[in-house]
Design a protein around this nucleic acid. Structure first.
Lengths: 161, 161
DNA sequence: GGAAATAGAACCATTTTGGTCCTCTATTCA
DNA sequence: TGAATAGAGGACCAAAATGGTTCTATTTCC
């Protein structure tokens, strides 16, 4: 349920790009300095983001990276997908159903697909433009409305806010 | 972005409990056999679920585990929390902000909190009762409505369905 | 008391991840 | 033309997380 650091950094970097302005290109070194991470690390991430068509790379002397589209057309899900592969919370959602020990007994698979879809959609609805906003108080429309009145917090132990 | 196997199995197990009926207790061995996983593995998972107050354990000869509440009052988020700790996709969402190398520069943190909230809410809205349904075609109300018309799939590469 | 069941912790092998480095290719400009 | 700059790609290794097993309590019923 946790993102890898690369995806985490990736979103920070992409958000940084979104803040800088649309068409401008920036070098790996610049970005690394501005985000306070090592150049090799940032380099790795930028390459992956370019492979995923989220950044456009320009080689040579005045080269660098720039966003491939407008910030409101790139979702958090896009970034995660570029850095971690297709979003899916369970192994059995991959088409290569190699490792599922349960296979025939697992009657939950169909439902898992839908759980994945819920999460994926939630992340697709969040764009870099949202992330670039300094104080995002208007996120409410992105969240699914509470489905029905959940129980009073009788058994709800230590759930953070 | 992926669940650990334990959480994965945990949801399978909990869904199994939900299918079996509300108050009945079942032994580790039975569950393991029914779900086709090793007894020690299932044992470990059941213990954690009991620690998380999602299962009630009964020691001794006719002991076993049973659901602590009705299936529609236990969410997928509850299960994940019991087996992986609090749901949050980045390291910096934990209160122990020990490892964040970026700290002061990371202007994204506030937004991340909201991303986490979106995902968490999505998972809180899915109950074991939903998971226990054989053919869950009526999941639609659980998903957030498409926020606005996303771009045509110009750059949308290999996004699975 | 003995058998049946869970509680809890220690433990190890394997995999994943984080992070670095090296070589190659493309581009610009003097 | 050639030197300098910048990204592409892959190899590589150490550290951490994960999966899975096993062992020793402790509780409960007969």
């Amino acid at each position: 349920m946790r993102l890898t650091r690369q995806a985490d950094y990736g979103i920070v970097v992409m958000t940084h790009f979104a803040r800088l302005g649309e068409g401008e290109t920036h070098t790996t070194r610049d970005i690394a300095a501005e985000v306070h991470l090592s150049v090799p690390m940032i380099s790795k991430i930028l390459k992956a983001l370019a492979r995923g068509d989220l950044l456009v790379s320009q080689r040579g002397v005045n080269g660098g990276y720039s966003l491939s589209r407008a910030a409101d057309e790139i979702s958090v899900a896009d970034v995660i997908t570029a850095l971690e592969g297709p979003i899916g919370m369970t192994a059995c959602t991959d088409e290569h159903s190699d490792g599922c020990d349960i296979d025939d007994v697992c009657a939950v698979r169909g439902n898992w697909q839908l759980v994945n879809q819920v999460v994926r959609r939630a992340l697709e609805n969040i764009t870099l433009e949202h992330m670039a906003e300094p104080m995002p108080c208007t996120f409410d429309e992105l969240m699914p409305p509470p489905r029905k009145e959940r129980l009073p917090q009788a058994h709800n132990h230590e759930r953070d806010s």
